[in-house]
């Protein structure tokens, strides 16, 4: 049924925004991490969203109706911008000149992203609730 598909689509949006929010949380939590798994400072992670593709049957109906199936996180990429350096010779991760490389995470950018992501999450839930109400109306009308 069409309304079910609409619900799935908005749910996919909720899921994708949640993953984006997890990455923002990870970025903010690691804002001072100077030593990640591979030795470098922590690199800012970004979720790349794309139109979701599902199995063959869904793809077929998608091609027929020119519709798609929502959204998904297609990739998580690392921000390759350079690490800022601060002079702190006492730090265990300081180089020979006394500079420490810090993660390329900007607190303000993350906060803005966080608000945007949370608004998008809300918008998807609004769609979900509207469609839910349409279904309830249909059920209670007869």
């Amino acid at each position: 049924m069409g309304l079910d598909r609409a619900m799935n689509i908005s749910f996919s949006g909720v899921q994708a925004e949640r993953i984006a929010m997890e990455l923002i949380a990870s970025n903010l939590a690691n804002i001072n991490t100077t030593r990640s798994l591979y030795g470098d400072p922590y690199r800012r992670k970004i979720a790349v969203l794309g139109e979701r593709t599902l199995n063959f049957a869904d793809e077929l109906s998608r091609a027929q109706s020119k519709l798609s199936n929502g959204v998904e996180v297609i990739d998580v990429v690392e921000d390759m911008s350079p690490f800022p350096k601060v002079y702190n010779p006492g730090h265990p991760d300081a180089d020979s000149q006394g500079f420490v490389r810090l993660p390329n995470v900007e607190e303000s950018t993350e906060m803005v992203d966080q608000i945007y992501t949370s608004r998008m999450y809300e918008a998807n839930i609004t769609v979900f609730n509207t469609i839910k109400k349409m279904k309830q109306d249909t059920i209670s009308a007869f």
């Binding site: 619900m7 908005s10 949006g13 519709l67 918008a123 349409m134």
Partner: peptide, 26 residues
């Protein structure tokens, strides 16, 4: 009713993909 349902699907898809880079709303 079928048409409005289909429209809701399109709107849901547009909102879900609001952050998708290069996505053109249907």
């Amino acid at each position: 009713m079928q048409i409005t349902t289909m429209k809701q699907e399109i709107i849901a898809h547009n909102i879900a993909n609001a952050k998708t880079p290069g996505y053109e709303p249907l």
